[in-house]
Design a protein around this nucleic acid. Structure first.
Lengths: 342, 342
DNA sequence: CTGAAAGCGCTTACAG
DNA sequence: CTGAAAGCGCTTACAG
């Protein structure tokens, strides 16, 4: 293993000063073209690359973005929610395109939030991504903001939340689902998923859902709601609970596709046919949702766009440009699980 | 936005030297307990965190691992292969558990390999992950090795490849699939997927497949093979090609689940029934494979274990411990797409 | 147990 | 266009 070359080594070989090497390698026009090319040639031969730690330390910026994935501590340890995995892919790509590196770290919400502050020293900004108990990390956002850390989070728009958020219009998504189901003739509804301020995204879907149904004359108290976090198992348990309680409905709106898949699993053990006896709708449009039987009607959140937007917005914030919350439109994906003819 | 505090600020506040602050914050036993606690208390109040760039520069290590995802340039730009996404999740977790940060970067194989060398300055080691043209990056591995960079790659074991590789026993996987299909009564076979040294993993699956069939008296020349890269579209095209050429077989072994899903899609447009008229088998056991109709028989690669192994092995290499290639066993996942009774 | 000092490898004003 | 020098914020021998 060779010793790693430094800019001094190159300076020595090229017969110039180290300052000149540094300039040449950053393509500074201040350096004579021939000198520059000679230096770059030597650097290439030596496989020399600028030491990022030294360079970042000196420049006081890192050209790195940190992605903080946090999850409900109860969720399956071995798997990440496919929706966030998809976001991760998209964010990775967007960072690469912008010439930024991406530092990924995991976070259980139980942990203390040391990691963020750690990250804030290695990255120019942070992207926060995850379902999880919103209230429990709200104060942390405030701390981040006070600290002057640039961050953008994926999630529900909230009047006076700290920092910037990019999210999907969950209210609209729930609203559209309700109208779609109502127009197909369904009249008795249930919502499966947590629906309180700890899970503001689910709550917004729920609120959109009941708001639309109210317009059709169906009051909220006629719509049953069963708690569930975003996992298959949780969805399956919720459905089993409803069956055990003899709660029968025409249509179930699940707060996420994973929940819906769990619900389908539980229903398969019964004689109920989907969608003839009961319609099931999900949310997220994860890849699997197109392959369940029947294929899930769901709401698409454009993860590609979302990732790009998160990165773009964060970079603007880092550059002290003005940034604002952004709500992406939700798109209804109609498949077979709700009894549509389509 | 406050100015970021430094160890000097804390030293000033605590009335000690900056050296002592540094020691206290790294929990050095050299510092008086009370002094240490006082300093840590102040640091906490200030939300002070050690500057990683400075610390790394001084220590000459980064406690960071870089993950290099490379992909076939032809694959769909908007999506990462779900198998690698799953690996990414597992690697992220394993890094977090080991106290390492993970730097993720993308790479098109067309790019020149600057990025690796970049990364090698920001990370203590590199994990290489991806399908793609193996031959085209082989020389790069040699360069990395010469440079003294620690790296581990996911992929096919190869007698004299540079560096360490962790992989799944693709030969065994193909072998088991062949036996399974043969025992179910299938006699006329096809393999869909690239099967040359550019794609050594696919090749090993193919080799295992034909080796097992040869033992059953079916010579390699009786087994058709159609090229495809690991995407749905490529699988669908390959199947359409076979249909157009009137190549009819009992059973198709697809080099990946994505290919198999494309094959199913193409077959749905015909009158052929799966598995009655034709069996289809995939590879990878991606989440979707359990939900296709019929559900895909496939080969599982344990991504959780694989991620842990990759990280663990790389850390050992970084610590100059002896490391060796490792081949994980492949596990047959039997579902409905091959006509098994199970 | 503590402090003064060197130095990690760069970038960039400053001077020419 | 080029060089000498300062300094980014730490860690760690060295000296006491």
């Amino acid at each position: 293993m060779k010793e790693k070359a430094t800019s001094f080594d190159i300076a020595h070989m090229a017969g110039v000063s180290q300052s000149t090497v540094s300039r040449a390698l950053s393509n500074s026009p201040l350096v004579n073209k021939e000198t520059r090319e000679r230096i770059q040639q030597i650097a290439r031969e030596l496989n020399y690359k600028v030491d990022k730690n030294a360079s970042n330390l000196r420049k006081q910026k890192s050209t790195t973005i940190a992605l903080l994935l946090f999850e409900d501590p109860t969720s399956d340890d071995s798997m990440i929610n496919p929706f966030f995995l998809s976001m991760l892919g998209s964010i990775t790509r967007a960072c690469a395109n912008a010439g930024y590196d991406l530092l990924v770290s995991f976070q259980n919400l139980e942990d203390d939030w040391h990691a963020e502050f750690e990250d804030s020293n290695k990255a120019d900004g942070i992207i926060l991504l995850g379902y999880g108990d919103y209230l429990s990390y709200r104060t942390k956002l405030t701390q981040l903001e006070e600290q002057g850390t640039h961050f953008v989070r994926w999630g529900a728009h909230d009047e006076d939340h700290p920092g910037i958020s990019i999210g999907c219009d969950n209210f609209q998504g729930g609203f559209d689902i309700a109208n779609h189901l109502y127009n197909l003739g369904h009249r008795k509804f249930s919502f499966i998923g947590d629906a309180d301020s700890h899970a503001p995204e689910f709550l917004a879907r729920y609120t959109g859902f009941i708001t639309a149904l109210k317009k059709h004359g169906i009051p909220a108290q006629d719509i049953s709601q069963v708690n569930a976090i975003s996992t298959e198992d949780s969805g399956s348990e919720a459905m089993q609970f409803m069956l055990a309680e003899n709660q029968f409905v025409d249509a179930i709106f699940c707060a996420s596709d994973l929940i819906a898949i769990g619900v389908l699993r539980a229903l398969r053990k019964t004689s109920l046919r989907i969608p003839e006896d009961i319609a099931v709708v999900g949310y997220d449009n994860i890849p699997v949702s197109a392959f369940t039987s029947p294929a899930l009607t769901t709401v698409q959140q454009n993860t590609k766009k979302a990732g790009e937007l998160l990165v773009e917005t964060l970079l603007k914030a880092i550059n002290k440009e003005d940034v604002a919350d952004y709500l992406m439109p939700a798109e209804l994906i109609i498949r077979q699980s709700c009894g549509s003819k389509k």
